[in-house]
Write a protein that binds this DNA or RNA. Sequence first.
DNA 1: CGGATGATCTGCT
DNA 2: GCAGATCATCCGT
Length: 259
Amino acid sequence: MEEPQIPKNLRKPIKKTIKKTTIIQRKSKKTSSKIQKSHFEDDDNDNESNPSCSFSSFLEKWPILVSDFYQIDALELAPLLLGKYLRKDNVVLQITEVEAYRPNDSACHGRFGVTARTAPVFGPGGHAYVYLCYGLHTMLNIVADKEGAGAAVLIRSCAPIIGLETIQQRRGMVTEKPVLLAGPGKVGQALGLSTEWSNHSLFTPGGLELLDGPRPQHILVGPRVGIDYALPEHVNALWRFAIAGTPWISAPKNTLRPP
DNA sequence: CGGATGATCTGCT
DNA sequence: GCAGATCATCCGT
């Protein structure tokens, strides 16, 4: 699988990148310990904070989720995905913000039926649905529910867990701030996804995998982003979910509230 | 910090 | 043709 090129308008002049590096690296040491704190129930997890803790012990602690996990309504699956880990080779991201898209949902890509692009949405749960947005952003969804249902969960934001340098390289910026991974297009870019990853199985070892993860203590809900074309009942539905307290949330944040 | 804008391609409202 | 589950940059406060 080839590494997708960074689109021209998303590239930065080399001068600026270097300049930023020095500024950001100074700040990052302070913030990193703060970010790790206590948005999760079992906080004995030393994998993220202890650099000497090996990659393999992380993988031992958080096994790949099985196919059965996904065979439920997208509205039920979406909040369950918060805190789980996305892994592709040496990069691991933790899911912090998602949106559910469902059958008979005027905002869902499946609303016109099966097309070449949306076919994976109608497949069995547990596969990726990756599509190109605005011609340049790759958006990662996780297909939900039984075969034929037509439901998926959009991954809107993640926190970087392992492989920060690879993530920064793919994103074309050296920072640990939310601008690195808060937004669905950024997640796709950080994972190095192209539309060729659409329909990839997430429960089969190799390639892109979804691992179990800690359960968030508190969850926020809100209306979904960027679906003004949909019916009012779907525009207003509170089908966006995020981990309470995490900085890894896309805009707008002020529409999120406790359930 | 907020609003406007261009990039770039897919499927059809 | 055109709008779209977006993002980074530019220019104004």
